[in-house]
């Protein structure tokens, strides 16, 4: 029986094997197969006003917020889900009531809402979207536009049943 259970060689072997295991992802817990739910983004809920009305268009329009809503796991499209949208636009600040609106997804889980052009605020041209209806876990998103000149933004929700 050796006096020391750990010598330099065994230490390096075990250490190297541990690093390799963690690095290769073998220690990641078994995941529900399929699509992971979309996590809430930092700052996503800033200037949120609960209960924005479903509208055919926010203000004068000119900018398209589009996207999809699917269920976590199997990725099934979710129809009839209410998505709330707000942003700093050419017609008002994020905090203004008139900058907020909501829309429902169609049977294929797609949503489209026309709104005024988003302009950079607090250093970035960005929008805010929320799912907050209760059937699934609440998600707040804060996507950033690739360019402030863009006239549309596409955003995807994967929701986890509450």
């Amino acid at each position: 029986m050796p006096e020391n259970l750990f010598n330099r060689r065994s230490f390096l072997t075990i250490g190297g094997a541990s690093v390799a295991t963690v690095g290769s992802g073998l220690l990641v817990p078994a995941r529900a197969k399929g699509l992971d739910p979309t996590p809430t983004m930092r700052g996503g809920a800033n200037n949120y006003r609960p209960g924005a009305p479903v509208v055919s268009r926010i203000g004068g329009g000119g900018f398209w917020m589009t996207g999809t809503v699917r269920r976590a796991g199997d990725g099934a499209p979710l129809g009839g889900q209410r998505i709330q949208i707000w942003a700093h636009t050419t017609e008002g600040h994020e905090r203004d009531k008139r900058s907020h609106g909501a829309t429902l997804t169609d049977a294929s889980g797609e949503f489209r809402l026309e709104m005024p052009q988003i302009v950079p605020a607090f250093g970035q041209a960005h929008g805010h979207l929320a799912y907050d209806s209760g059937d699934f876990e609440t998600v707040f998103l804060r996507p950033v536009m690739r360019s402030s000149k863009d006239t549309s933004l596409r955003v995807h929700f994967v929701l986890k049943p509450a």
Binding site: R42, G43, G44, N46, N47, H93, F122, G123
Partner: peptide, 23 residues
């Protein structure tokens, strides 16, 4: 001035939890 404009964004920045990399 930024605080008056959008309090939650400034609170996030001051608490180092803002999504914007420059704040």
């Amino acid at each position: 001035g930024l605080w008056v404009t959008s309090p939650p964004d400034v609170v996030d920045a001051l608490l180092f939890r803002s999504p914007t990399p420059f704040s």
